[in-house]
Design a protein around this nucleic acid. Structure first.
Length: 754
DNA sequence: TTACTAAGACTTTTT
DNA sequence: GTCTTAGTAA
């Protein structure tokens, strides 16, 4: 089991220190260490499977961990808590729903459900949705929750935020009334449960002797607090992560948790896994050199004994279409050389970039697979069925009610629903319970809908889950609706797929035995009425609904087909490919313009590039286009600064490297850019490249790198051009006043030397 | 209630 | 350029 480990991996797996921080570089065998440690702990009698808790961010990672573990050691995994933060918190809350103040059948809102609930709340309370756009409210609430804050503790420093906190309060009341929790609430509730209930807390603190955390750099503040609480004073914490691969700060991840963990727990017990088993030398050296430009690193340098390998290749093309064409031609050549299509990945910063590449691949008849986009359980038709199922399971869930009360259409319009909503508010009950209070013809229609749900609920008693789903799609009219729809064939197929999924789910549940699991829980908590543990076994329907919310399904379709892999760099994290194309390596796109101004934004972009580079095993190709169609207009950009940060001796230019022009104001650009770490003197100020693409406005020619003078802002350099003619705009970095975007037709600019 | 049109967005998104 | 959402006409 431990025979194949290198010394650092071995040290991590067998450490006897209470707490350990493992800095695991890309491709250094992170999952192997994590799973081997679990196996080692169990095999050596340090702990029984029952005392292990391992937490990951994705269901996929959790599954892989269990698979690898059982392959190593015949472990009874039923008593183990291995899962995502959200999955484990859900488990905790189901077991202690009373103490957590939740109904037993509470439903989980995904982001779309949550947004719908917020919109409904804003309407019901006559809140100005111009001042408080639902999306902003959603972000405010989720941010607050991820920091462990409730409406009464969240910081308010102005009237606007004060109002947001009030809306948060209203939202909380609405969720409570409807028996629903959002993703962030799962964590916060579980945290509050543990922190307030001594009995429950001590039980789990006693139980989980070993807590292992994967992708620790991605944890948010609340998750860290949750872990600390769960660990108590005696558990052993084993955190594995890579600060250089922290790319989710924008959604609340706090890399600072790594140094906090070092300070609070691990002390000097930090183990670095730096030997890389994935890539050749040039790739790793380039990645190391790039990430060196970041400050605030815990520090790490990847190395390999596989040899240097190929140089990294760079290609510049005039347009995004030609870039795509070049990439596809190159892909074809690589396939002809015998490379597997599924071992070739095309990565990009933003989803919109996939289009021209898809087009070129399609024209070339090369099979490809795009990752990202809608997932199975997020599809409209699936969410509709799930809404019916939720109403059957709970009934209080107004979001689900609103979703399907008039779908398929039953002549229940907006007016009727407004009436209903008013009635419900007056009575102080949920929508479905207020249907009797609405008079007239519309009231009859509402009653018919309520009766439908009631009948379905009775039917649910006697039907198996797959049978129930089939029955619901028939009785609700969903099937008929999609049969009549011109393009409903695919939706019908998905409904069939949902029934398959339910069948598989039930089979798996019976096999693995969620029931058996509940038995295990119960053996710990004897059947006394004061036990904080839930006594009832949960129904297949309830389990399936949780499953659907917490696991939206794979983002990839049919695996196994040998196809080119297209995805964002974020989606590529954790994956590896023989040959990788990193496309659109342009200023403004990568690093993205929005992140350049954000705090630490540039460092996160650089980590993103680091992640991208370290995906490649054998061959890595960068490509960029000088002109690109974006948001309906052509944008001209220059080569990404990240390419300048890669040492020349790892690069091979397949097209002529565009000319570099001495440009005094370029130095100022770096000065303006505080993230470029001028203190080390590492970065040599480089001039922007002049490119052929220019813009002509009222007789003047503008191009990237052009020096200009503005009467008010002074001298500066054009770093980007967008649009044509009257719409043409230039982003200009002024020596003294920073970056500005100006309309060329309006701004009075003089062309100066450059 | 449906269907068309206009307006606005538009970086990344494990649960 | 393309998609989603909101608003209005039929």
């Amino acid at each position: 089991m431990i025979g194949q480990l290198n010394p650092e991996q071995l040290a991590a797996v067998t450490t006897n220190e209470q707490h350990t921080l493992v800095l695991a570089g890309a491709g250094s065998g992170k999952t192997k260490v994590l799973t081997t440690r679990m196996a080692w702990l169990i095999q050596n009698g340090k702990v029984s499977p029952y005392g292990v808790l391992a937490v990951t961010f994705t269901n996929k990672a959790a599954r892989e961990m269990l698979t690898r573990l059982t392959a190593m050691l015949p472990v009874d995994t039923r008593g183990m808590w291995v899962g995502t933060f959200h999955g484990l918190c859900n488990r905790l809350l189901r077991a202690h729903y009373r103490d957590a103040g939740l109904p037993q059948n509470f439903q989980i809102l995904d982001i779309a459900d949550q947004l719908a609930a917020i919109k409904r709340l804003i309407k019901a309370n006559d809140i100005d949705d111009e001042k408080f756009p639902p999306k902003d409210v959603q972000r405010f609430i989720n941010n607050a929750k991820e920091n462990g804050e409730r409406p009464d503790t969240v910081e308010v420093w102005d009237a606007h935020r004060k109002r947001l906190a009030e809306i948060y309060q209203l939202y909380q009341e609405q969720c409570q009334r409807e028996g629903v929790v959002d993703f962030a609430e799962l964590l916060l509730r579980a945290y509050e449960l543990l922190s307030r209930n001594v009995l429950v807390r001590e039980h789990y603190q006693r139980r989980f002797r070993y807590i292992l955390i994967d992708e620790f750099q991605d944890t948010n503040t609340l998750q860290y607090k949750w872990l600390c609480l769960l660990a108590g004073a005696h558990a052993s914490l084993f955190a594995v992560g890579d600060d250089d691969q922290s790319i989710y700060a924008f959604r609340g991840a706090n890399v600072g948790n790594m140094s906090a963990f070092e300070r609070d727990y691990a002390g000097n017990n930090i183990i670095r896994l730096e030997q890389n088993y994935r890539s050749y030398g040039h790739i790793l050296d380039a990645a190391n050199a790039l990430i060196e430009h970041n400050t605030e690193r815990l520090g790490k340098n990847l190395w390999t004994d596989r040899g240097e390998g190929e140089l990294l290749r760079v290609v510049e093309q005039p347009t995004d279409l030609l870039e795509a064409q070049w990439v596809v031609d190159e892909i074809r050549a690589q396939i002809n050389d015998g490379r597997l299509r599924s071992e070739i990945a095309v990565l990009y910063r933003s989803n919109a970039q996939s289009r021209p590449i898809e087009h070129a691949l399609f024209s070339a008849h090369i099979p490809y697979k795009v990752y990202g986009g809608l997932r199975f359980f997020e599809r409209q038709e699936i969410k509709h069925v799930l809404a019916y199922l939720r109403l059957i399971a709970s009934g209080d869930d107004d979001t689900s009610f609103m979703r399907v009360v008039n779908f398929p259409t039953r002549g229940i319009g907006a007016r009727t629903l407004e009436n209903l909503s008013d009635c419900a508010r007056q009575i102080g009950c949920n929508l479905i319970h207020a249907v009797g209070a609405v008079s007239g013809r519309s009231g009859t229609k509402l009653l018919a809908f309520a009766k439908l749900i009631e009948t379905l609920r009775e039917d649910a008693q006697t039907l198996s889950l797959p049978e129930l789903i089939k029955h619901v799609t028939d009785a609700s009219g969903l099937n008929a609706h999609y049969e009549a729809e011109r393009e409903g064939a695919e939706r019908l197929e998905n409904l069939g797929e949902l029934i398959n999924a339910a069948t598989a789910f039930c089979a798996e549940e019976n096999l693995e035995g969620k029931a058996a699991l509940a038995q295990v829980e119960r053996s710990v908590a004897p059947d006394d009425p004061d036990s904080p543990f839930a006594q009832e076994l949960t129904s297949a329907l309830a389990l399936f609904l949780s499953h659907a919310s917490l696991e939206a399904g794979d983002n990839q379709a049919q695996a196994g087909e040998d196809a080119i892999q297209l995805m964002t760099i974020h989606a590529a994290k954790g994956l590896e490919f023989d040959s990788v194309f990193i496309t659109g390596v342009e200023e403004g796109l990568f690093p993205h313009e929005n992140s350049i101004m954000a705090e630490d934004g540039l460092e996160e972009e650089r980590r993103l590039m680091y992640v991208a580079i370290t995906r490649a095993k054998e061959r890595l190709t960068f490509s960029l286009a000088h002109a690109r169609m974006l948001h309906g207009q052509t944008r001209y950009s220059m080569r990404s600064r990240f390419l300048e940060e890669l040492p020349d001796d790892h690069l091979k230019w397949l097209t002529p490297r565009t000319r570099e022009v001495a440009e005094p104001s370029w130095g100022m650009r770096l000065h303006v850019d505080a993230h470029a770490r001028p203190s080390t003197g590492r970065i040599e100020p480089r001039a922007p490249r002049s490119i052929s693409s220019g813009v002509s406005v009222s007789g003047k020619e503008y191009r990237i790198g052009q020096g200009v003078r503005h009467s008010r802002f002074g001298d500066g350099t054009i770093i980007r051009l967008t649009g044509q003619g009257a719409d043409a705009q230039a982003e200009i970095v002024f020596r003294d006043t920073g970056a500005k975007t100006l309309a060329l037709a309006v701004a009075k600019l003089d062309i100066i030397a450059g």
